[in-house]
Write a protein that binds this DNA or RNA. Structure first.
Lengths: 122, 122
DNA sequence: CGAATAGTTAGCCATCGGGATAACTGTAGG
DNA sequence: CCTACAGTTATCCCGATGGCTAACTATTCG
């Protein structure tokens, strides 16, 4: 198995901050410049740039500079990896729940059978 | 919109560490005691307990103590919230991609039309 | 009872994370 | 050319995180 994936850590870390999630929610609608992205936030630009750096380092965002303007865009692949990890856990959990349901149904059937036997024995 | 959700931050933060993800991967298969969970990891127990504390504080894991044994179990709801957030972003991205495809196809049609006009004009 | 088991609490350390300011670089535009 | 604009870099501050050891509590079992 060996599921140590540092990439996944990077993505989840990138998403653990409200500012960075807000940036993602903007970028899913299309590319934006740095200043356009930064505008809604009450923090200084260098502080905001650190968030962008985290997003880029995690691979969630890519950017290129033309003239003095840097344009950022989303890279959906990493988000998809995180989503798939969560889905995989859910699938295991749900399959277990199914077995639990089966287990409980078995208990019920056995209970009925026992009741029947007792009935006949009475 | 106001999507600041500190809960989501907690969940993503809980998942940004490989040790904690490994714990989740164990717990989706069913409840476990603290020592059983800690056994695979090369760290001291108090260090491991901090990870468990993060998982519990985020609401991803719940635990109860019977006698001297504490048993942990997964709470799937929080993971589901994170998964839904990711899915929502993907949906927006994909709808945009659809529009982009339409846009490019339009460009192509216009290009063809222009070529035709030029053809006639020639 | 006494020893082993299962956690827990307390405190120490180094590094990281999110914020700030100040000063700088490079590109447009008038 | 020179000013305004869009980012960038360099530091600093401080609280949070992830690791450790040591010492402690509370069960269980022989």
């Amino acid at each position: 198995m060996a599921n140590y994936s540092p990439r996944l850590s990077g993505v989840f870390h990138a998403l653990d901050d409200p500012t960075r999630r807000a940036v993602v929610r903007t970028l899913v609608r299309g590319p934006e410049t740095v200043s356009a992205l930064a505008a809604p936030f009450p923090m200084a630009l260098p502080s905001f740039l650190k968030h962008l750096a985290v997003l880029e380092e995690s691979g969630v965002v890519r950017s290129r500079k033309e003239g003095r303007v840097r344009t950022c865009e989303l890279v959906p692949r990493r988000l998809a990896q995180a989503e798939r990890w969560l889905a995989a856990q859910r699938v295991v959990w749900e399959s277990r729940s199914d077995r639990m349901v089966g287990f409980v149904e078995n208990l019920h059937r056995e209970e009925q059978a026992r009741a029947k036997r007792n009935d006949r024995a009475r």
